[in-house]
Amino acid sequence: MRATSIIYRRELAAYLRSPAGWIVAAAALLIEGILFQIRGLSQEQLSADVLRQFFWSMSGVTMFAAIILAIRLVAEERQTQSLVLLNTSPVSDLSIVAGKFLAALTFLGGILALSVYMPLLIKVNGKITASQIIVGYLGLWLLGAAYLAIGLFASALTRHQLLAGVLGALFGGVMVMFYQLGKVLDPPFRDVVSHLDAWWGHFQGGFMIGVISLENVVYYLALTYFFLLLAVKTMEAKRWQ
C-alpha cells in the first residue's frame, strides 16, 4: 500500500508536470465543448435529451482520453529504462500497476470534473435533476477506469508508445463491438457476447439515461480488474523473457 502511494504521487506529479497531460486534458475539453455545442445546443430539444447527448459524446472523449493517458505509463518507462528503478526496488508489480492506474484515474477524474460546467448549464436552463448528472458522471468515471486499464495493459505489452496506443485503441474498439457482434449470433451466445460490450448495454442503456444498476457497476469494475490483472501478469512475464 505504501509503495502504491509513493508511485501514485510520482505519476500524478508527472502528469501535472508534463505538457502531454495538459494537452490531453485541453483537447478532451475542447472536443467535448464543440460536440456539446453542435449536438446539444444547436437545436431545440428537451433538457434530458441534451444531457443524454452530452454523456453520449463525453463517453467517447473519455474512452479516447483514457487510452492516450495510459499508454505512456509503462511503455515510456521501458523506453527510457527508468522502469529498472521500480523493478529493482522492493515493490510488487501489483503496487506498480495500481499506483500508476490510480494516478491516471485521478487525472482523468480531474478532466471529467472540468467538464461539469456543461451539464450544470443544462440544469440551470432546463429540467434535469442533480442525480441524473451524478449517475452519468459515475458511469463516465467507471468507463474511464476500464479504458485506462485497457490502455495500461497495452502499455505493459511494449516499449513503443505508438504501438501501445494502437493496441489500446484496438482492444478498446473490440470492447465496443461485442454488442453488434451479438446481434448476428444465435442464443445463448447472443446474450453472452452482447453483455461483454463496454458501451452499448452498460453505459448507453444505463448511466447515460440516469439509471444506475449494480450489474453495470460490477461489469465495469470487473472489466477494470481483468485488464489490470493482465497488465500485472504481463509485467511479471516480461521478467522471465
Binding site: 508511485i7 510520482r10 508536470r17 508534463s18 527510457t80 528503478l85 526496488s89
Partner: peptide, 19 residues
C-alpha cells in the same frame, strides 16, 4: 534509471522511499 521531469532531490527521495 532516471526520470527527466524530476529534480535530483525529489528523485532521490522517491528512490529512497521505494526502498
Amino acid at each position: 534509471p532516471l526520470y527527466p521531469d524530476m529534480t535530483v532531490i525529489d528523485y532521490l527521495r522517491f528512490a529512497a522511499e521505494l526502498r
